[in-house]
Computed example of a mutant assay.
Amino acid sequence: MKFDDKIPIYIQIKNYLYRRIITGDLQPGEKLPSVRQLAVDVTANVNTVQRALSEMLANKVIESQRGKGNFVTADEEMISNLKAEVVHKQISIAYEELHSLKLTDEEIIKEFQQYIHDRSAQNA
């Protein structure tokens, strides 16, 4: 995993795992790899991975089962809410960037529509 120097590594690891959960790569109720294995997989310090997992536990996105490990929550509504939160955050980032270029809301919508149209044409 490549890390962005501007964002704390534990947050990037947490976001990486959130994306894996949202996309279904990690299913509800599925056991996560051990902390040590995750550290190897993402090339990060074990303590950094543990910090990411601790936040995920606090947010109830994952659950810890004593002696068994960490598991993705089985609460599909929680996962749906997580997806909505991540999508909203990404849209917010894009919106703020485009708005700083002095684009109006209508221009931003038009640009997004054109982008989606062009992408669809490329993939056809």
Rank of each mutant, 00 (worst) to 15 (best):
I13G: 02
E55V: 00
Q122A: 06
Q50W: 03
E77Y: 02
S34A: 11
E76Y: 01
I116F: 04
Y95M: 10
I9N: 01
M56I: 03
T104F: 02
L103S: 05
Y16K: 06
M78Q: 15
Y10M: 07
L26Q: 01
P28T: 06
I91P: 00
L82P: 07
I109C: 00
T48H: 04
Y95F: 15
S80V: 03
K60Q: 15
S120K: 14
V72M: 06
K2W: 03
D75E: 08
K102M: 08
L82A: 09
P33L: 11
K14E: 12
F71G: 15
L101I: 05
L101W: 03
D5W: 04
K31L: 12
V72A: 08
S120P: 00
I21D: 04
V42W: 05
T104I: 04
G67H: 07
H99S: 12
K6N: 13
F3N: 04
V40I: 14
Q27E: 08
S64Y: 13
N45F: 02
A84W: 05
D75A: 03
R51K: 13
Q50N: 12
P33E: 13
D75S: 10
R119T: 08
T43W: 01
L98W: 03
Q113M: 04
D41S: 14
T23W: 00
P8T: 12
M78S: 12
Q122I: 02
I7N: 02
D5V: 09
K68R: 15
K89T: 10
E55Q: 13
H88R: 12
A52T: 08
T48W: 03
D105Y: 01
H117Y: 11
A52P: 01
L53P: 01
N123T: 07
L57T: 11
K2S: 09
M56T: 05
L32I: 11
I91C: 09
S54V: 00
L17D: 01
V35R: 14
E30S: 14
E63L: 12
E30L: 05
D4K: 09
Q65S: 09
Y10T: 06
Y18M: 02
N123Q: 08
I116W: 05
N45A: 07
L17Q: 02
Q122T: 07
F71A: 14
P33S: 13
N59W: 00
K68Y: 11
N123R: 10
R36S: 12
D25Q: 10
E76G: 03
I108K: 11
I116T: 11
I22C: 02
T48S: 05
A44T: 11
R19C: 05
F112M: 13
V35C: 08
K60P: 00
K31F: 03
A121Q: 10
E77P: 00
V86E: 08
